[in-house]
């Protein structure tokens, strides 16, 4: 408690970051963003006082870094408890295997896999265009500004992708942009270039295309194969009894698959395949969320700078 009180906004934010060390990286990013909004507004509201004078009173108004940190920790725990509705998911045997159909995350992950081809193409195009134009324009005076705007754009895209991933997989991702220290323009440019996250974000956006292709193929192949198994007997009979014409083109090979006794086996195989696909989708969703967090969100440890 007797540590020297922060004397500037940057010192306060640094102290808050230290108090939150070990918390979720996304929570830290949000807390720093909120604190900065308040502190800058407070300094702007007292133009007659210096930043240090305003900061002196901060502990009694906004709260000392440790108080604010504990408020975020408590609220996060409560929100997490309130947002996760307790689900009755059987823990063993067939119940656990088929219980995946009750898990909304499995459906949203599957949807994410289908969507990731589209987002992957967009991210890839954006990043490759931005990088090659930056390289091409580097000899001209607009080269550097163009590159900076491009990097700023990738941060916005990264935040949006984070929101999408949190919606799809439930992994906590940042809800606010990352905090930028208000140092001079050139030192901010330098920080941005030194920031590991700038480059891992670019890597993520480029890698999203191959990953998106793989996810999309897994989802489409998995869905079509398992649904084909499930509906094959129906389509076969429909063709045989002339319910509709196109079904005549369906050939079940070997022929005994068309027998009446084989129908339940085909449907069962389809259901098992579909269930496996749902498990796979949920697993990929979790892995992708961890991977995205590692590349898109700054590590929770305080930066080595300063």
């Amino acid at each position: 408690m007797n540590r020297s009180a922060p004397r500037s906004i940057d010192q306060y934010l640094k102290a808050l970051r230290q108090e939150l060390a070990g918390e979720d990286a996304a929570l830290i990013q949000d807390a720093l963003y909120d604190a900065e909004e308040y502190l800058r507004a407070e300094v702007a509201a007292h133009p007659d006082k210096s930043e240090a004078d305003v900061l002196e009173l901060i502990a009694s108004t906004y709260g000392a870094p440790d108080e604010v940190a504990s408020a975020y920790r408590d609220t996060e725990a409560k929100v997490k408890a309130a947002m996760t509705t307790p689900r009755k998911v059987p823990k063993s045997g067939a119940g656990a295997f088929f219980g995946v159909f009750l898990d909304p995350r499995a459906y949203t992950s599957l949807f994410f896999m289908l969507l990731s081809l589209a987002t992957g193409i967009i991210y890839f195009t954006l990043t490759v265009t931005g990088l090659s134009l930056s390289a091409g324009l580097a000899v001209l005076i607009i080269g550097l500004p163009f590159f900076l705007v491009f990097v700023a754009l990738t941060r916005v895209v990264s935040l949006a992708e984070g929101r999408l991933i949190e919606a799809m997989t439930g992994e906590r991702m940042p809800r606010r942009p990352v905090h930028q220290s208000q140092a001079g323009f050139w030192s901010r440019v330098g920080q941005m270039l030194k920031d590991r996250r700038t480059w891992t974000t670019l890597a993520y956006l480029i890698l999203m295309l191959p990953l998106g292709v793989v996810y999309f193929v897994i989802a489409v192949v998995g869905l079509s194969v398992s649904l084909a198994f499930i509906f094959a007997p129906l389509v076969d009979w429909a063709g045989r009894y002339g319910w509709f014409d196109q079904a005549g083109d369906l050939h079940l090979n070997p022929a005994w698959l068309g027998a009446l006794w084989a129908a339940p086996l085909l449907v069962l195989a389809g259901v098992v395949l579909l269930t496996l696909l749902m498990h796979l989708a949920r697993g990929i969703g979790r892995l992708h969320a961890m991977y995205a967090k590692a590349l898109l969100v700054a590590p929770a440890a305080p930066p080595a700078a300063q």
Binding site: E36, A44, Y62, A71, Y72
Partner: peptide
């Protein structure tokens, strides 16, 4: 109330759909 404690609560209320929010650029900070 410490003023710093209201921000996480605002966010929680917003997550529970009791509040809506929109972002407006500002000259004095984020």
């Amino acid at each position: 109330f410490k003023e710093g404690t209201i921000y996480p609560v605002l966010r929680a209320l917003s997550a529970a759909n009791l509040l809506t929010s929109r972002i407006v650029p500002s000259y004095s900070g984020p």
